[in-house]
Structure formats: C-alpha cells, structure tokens
Design a protein around this nucleic acid. Structure first.
Lengths: 256, 256
DNA sequence: CTCGTTTCTTGTCGTATTGACTTTTTTACA
DNA sequence: TGTAAAAAAGTCAATACGACAAGAAACGAG
C-alpha cells in the first residue's frame, strides 16, 4: 500500500512521533492488535457505535424511542459497529431489534466524536435518523416512546443528537419525503396534515395543505378512498417513491 | 461505569460472544491496548481520520483543494484524529496546514465508514466542508486547486465525499451564509453574484440578485464603496455574521 | 325521506414573491 | 464633451402563498 493521502500526502517518510495531539502522552498500541493495522503508531478509538433516533408522530406530538439506563437516564438505541460492517447496517439492525421493522426511512445524521462523550473511552458514534409508523410498539420492554421536545435527562451526548435529528426533520419536511416512514402505504391528506402539523408545530389549512403537498410531486393518488365514520370519504394517496426523494420545493430556481 | 445504553440497554449480562457481525472471525484485542478501554471484546477501528473538502470559487468555477498521491490519483487533505481530539479540530488543523488560514467556515459533512473504504484497514473518516477565499494559495507543494465538477481519479471514497460537499453547498447557498469563507470581509454585490453563479451553475440577473440577497438579511452595507476601473462605484457589503447563520429563506412559513 | 352535521374537496381572492426587463445614476476614458 | 461601462433603482407580468368561502359526499337523528 503506497497511497497515504489521508495523512496529508506529505509523509512518505513517516515521522518517528506522529504529529497528532495526544499521541505523545499515550503509548501507541503494540503490534498484533487491531490498531496495528494502522501503518504507524496513530491512536485508534476503542470502538465505533451507531445510534438511532427513532421518531414517530402520535397524539399530535413528535415522539422518540428511548431506553432507560441503569441510573435512570434515557438513551437512544444503538450498538457497536462490527468489523466489516457499515454503520448504516448497524443502525438498521438496532432499529429492527427495537421495533421489529425493516426497510424504513433511515438516514445518517452525522458523526459525534467529541472527546469524553462516552465515559467508557474513545468511542465515536455515527448518529442516524429513522421514522416509523405511529402504531409501532417497541419490541424491547426497556424501550418507550417519550415526547421528543420535552425535557429529559439524556445519557451521553444524546440530547445533542436528538436536537440534530429534530432540526433535520423540520428542515426537510416540505422538501423531501421524510414522512414516508411515519405514514402508511396509503394515507389520506388529513393523515399527512396531522404529521406535518406536529413536526412543524403549526396548524395548516386543510385546503391549502392539500394544494401545496400535491404541488411537491411527492405524492400521487391511489384512486381508492376511505370512509371513516362521519363525513365525506377521503381520497387516498401514496408517496411516489418510498426511497429518499426530493420534492419540487422552491429553493432559488436554477436555470435549466 | 454502569450505563451501557449504547449497546442497546439490554446487555447488563454481556454475552460471551458479542452480537456483532464480524466479531467472531476477528480476534478481540488483548488488554493493555487502546481497544481494551472497551468494556468487552468489541472490535475497534484501526484509526479515525478527518478529511476536509476545501472549496473556493475561481474563474467562475468551483474548485477543490486536492493532493496528488504516489500512484497519480487525487485525494482530499486529511489526517488522523488524535486521542482526546475532536475531529473538527483535526480538520481545522489540516486546513491551516494546507492553506495557512484559520477561523474559516468549517462544517461537518458526515461520517464515511463503509467497510473497505480505506485499504489500510478499518479507518472511518469524518468528512468536513470548508470554504476559503479565492486568492488562497496552497501551502503544500503537493496540493493544487482542481475543478470540483470535472472528472478526476479520486483515491478512497473521496469522490463520494466531494459529491456530498457540493450538494451541501448548493443546497445551503440561499439559506445560509456558507459563502462567508469565499468572500472577503467587504465585498460588492457583483463579487457575491459571481460566487453564487458558479455554485448554482446559473447566471443571476444583477438587479434581482441584489434585491434577493439583501432580502435574506444575511448581509449589511458597510457604507463604503469601491471604484474599480470604469463604471459606477459599487456599494460594499459584509456578512452580518461570520458565524454559520441562516437567512430569511422561505421554506414553508411557520406560524409564530 | 329529509335535514343537519361532519369531513373532505374545490374554488376564489388579495397580497407577496419571483424573474426578466428597462431606466437612471455615476464613473472612467477617449 | 461625448461615449461606454458598471451599478443601482424602478417596472411589470406571472406565479406562489395564506386565508377564506363554497361545494360534494357521507352519516345519523327525527
């Protein structure tokens, strides 16, 4: 292996002491360990985890799947990434464990690797965002839905991760099909509106909402309709794509 | 340490064999190494790097700072994250090394940790995005500005990382002050327009551009003006904030 | 069966925003 | 003094937005 660009490309002659803060005080790992695959004595994390912010909308509120820890705090589901595993797969695996669901909307939020974030050692995490249907029951007795915007005593840096997740969902609401995960395959516009209301913390006008959501091109009518108790039956829609997609939002127009 | 939420909260009794793919085939690291800080035998990465996509706009094109590797490919600047170091600090450090600049627009893009992305071993990277002034000269002789949208033979998964960076910049162009890094402290609207034109790959109308950029509230007039050669002097502006900020873009309005 | 209620759908309208264009102002230079 | 260049300011039709009103289709009480 000759390529060495990740160190800056200038170190074909490796310095005796790596120019990395903290490397001087901490002994480099001996050969024969995982860290020895590193071609020099750079420190390596004690592990890598993948956390999942599992969100849904129920009773007009955004809710997040939380586990209770030994010391009474709440934490996001997550787990260690296996060797040869993609963090996204780890997240999907944990999601399936906790909800029994698979093939959901799952997206990476980013890396959280501040030193000291995990008291067990140097363990960065790759945070993910998932959205699941409202009727999902946690498969783990220690897991429960809690109000995502209420104050909680989060473990680790999970408060920060949750904040990033909420910001992401709010920002993408009208520009993407993030809500694919929350809404069932067929849904009425009123269902969608309830979700949008909860996420955006507002109350959309039914007529305007219908016009605007249709204008995004993200949904298409199924032709079916649903009668629920009183009133006129609602036409059912589905998302044109269940894969992550972008709508015809109007960020600044770009000439074709 | 009793909290163990990152493993899912259910493993107070740790299984003899961790339920992590790949953990069976690879021997867990012996005690006394970095990986030993992990409370069980979970595999740990061989290192963690931080890469930086350094972008600027010159001659009407978006350009990225690239290093040439031994085998003639191009690679993003980056380096190993030290123990006790935040990847953002690593990125800032590398950025300063390559450009001599500090306190620039620097933002995390996300984690790239696909297995096999680095032939040297299991080395996830935290990718960052930076924007620097157009007149920045690389401090490293092996570094050069190349067209960010032209085809190149990128090392590692750097093509993917660059694509994410470009998408991020394009998406945030009108909603944030991403361009702070590219534009000098004082700039004319024509300067800003040139940058926006290059990033958005379009040609904005000067009058409309001025009206719309002012409407974002991201910039404010300095009171100064600049005369360059012919024509009427241009009023100078500055960004209201050099810190990452959001403009008054109109994603769907939210009731106050 | 008819009326009133409920719920969803469709239409209207004033206002704000957008993109393209034109006009005016101010400078440099021949 | 005239002319070209560059920036600023103004104009205008098309469209998007938000609030509201009206129509349509179901249910249930009387």
């Amino acid at each position: 292996m000759t390529v060495d660009a990740d160190t800056g490309g200038e170190s074909r002659v490796r310095p005796a002491t790596p120019d990395v803060p903290g490397a001087q005080g901490s002994a480099p790992p001996p050969p024969g360990t995982w860290s020895a695959q590193n071609s020099a004595g750079y420190p390596s994390p004690a592990g890598l985890t993948a956390d999942v912010v599992v969100l849904t909308v129920r009773d007009g509120a955004v809710r997040v799947l939380a586990l209770t820890t030994d010391d009474g705090r709440v934490a996001l589901p997550g787990g260690f990434v296996g060797a040869g595993e993609d963090p996204a797969d780890t997240a999907a695996r944990k999601l399936t464990e906790k909800t029994g669901l698979r093939d959901l909307y799952l997206e990476q939020l980013g890396a959280f690797a501040a030193p000291g974030r995990d008291p067990r050692g140097w363990i960065p995490t790759v945070a993910h965002l998932a959205l699941v249907p409202a009727d999902t029951t946690p498969g783990d007795p220690a897991a429960a839905w809690i109000d995502a915007r209420a104050a909680h005593d989060w473990a680790f840096d999970h408060r920060e991760i949750l904040a990033a997740a909420l910001e992401r969902v709010e920002g993408k609401l009208w520009w993407s099909n993030v809500c694919v995960g929350v809404l069932p395959g067929d849904f009425a516009l009123a269902d969608a509106r309830a979700v949008y209301d909860a996420v955006a913390r507002t109350t959309y006008d039914p007529g305007t909402f219908a016009r605007d959501l249709r204008a995004t091109g993200l949904i298409e009518p199924t032709g079916e309709e649903r009668r629920a108790g009183k009133g006129r039956p609602a036409a059912l829609y589905r998302f044109a794509s269940r894969e992550p997609a972008w709508g015809a939002g109007r960020r600044k127009r770009v000439k074709a």
